[in-house]
Amino acid sequence: MQGGDEPLVRVRGLRKEFDGTTALAGVDLDVARGELVVLLGLSGSGKSTLLRCLNGLHRPSDGEVTVAGTRVDRASSRELRRLRTEVGFVFQQFNLVGRLTCLENVLIGGLGRVRGPRYGVSTYSRRMRAEAMAHIDRVGLADQAFQRADTLSGGQQQRVALARTLMQRPQLVLADEPVASLDPENAGTVMDLLVRVCAEEGLTVLCTLHQVDLALGWADRLVGLRQGEKVLDRPTAGLTKDEAMAIYRRVEPAAAVAA
């Protein structure tokens, strides 16, 4: 871990409420440049909300969120848009536009860099098309570049989504359950690819996961959330699986006993 002076992500006392329900109840978190942090926690523990607060898809109810020098909690919508161009987001459901080709889906990642509306591959410059093609090649789908995205398997679609993220040339990648919709084998492949590519590019990654095994294998640090509060924040080095699993177990002791 080579932490810079200033953490890329700095969160202090982050609260987020939806119509009276508290999703995040005061979370502090620092992520250093180049670090790979995995967020663990049950569904509904606030992981996705935390990620979405980092790029302003959700507005924090209270607290300070600084990402790459931008105060997300009080950014104007113009500042937010600028920030988002530097923050890649990988979704659980891939969120590709199914009717469009893989290439065009990847090109969408570059939209933040160009002015004016684009629609259809031919409205993007040659340079951007070449770059998008290179990213598709990198995730191993060059042959499928001109295929409709919805004709691909789930694992392939997530790889296209990853290429879309790379097209953004982000500093930070937020991945929301990137492999939860995939079978174990594809999950391994996609996770492997995500971690390798981000390491090669020196990207900072904040990723939510359900699989403790995957998390222990890849993360520099694990952060556990439970009911909107941080209950664990430790480097993976020296962390045992049981200790990590405790995040889940402590939530509902009754269920643990029953199991």
Binding site: L80, R84, G109, L111, R164, Q168
Partner: peptide, 14 residues
């Protein structure tokens, strides 16, 4: 979903 993905690359409403 796809809309959220496009928004998260940092473009405006249109």
């Amino acid at each position: 979903g796809p809309r959220e993905a496009v928004r998260s690359v940092g473009v405006g409403r249109v």
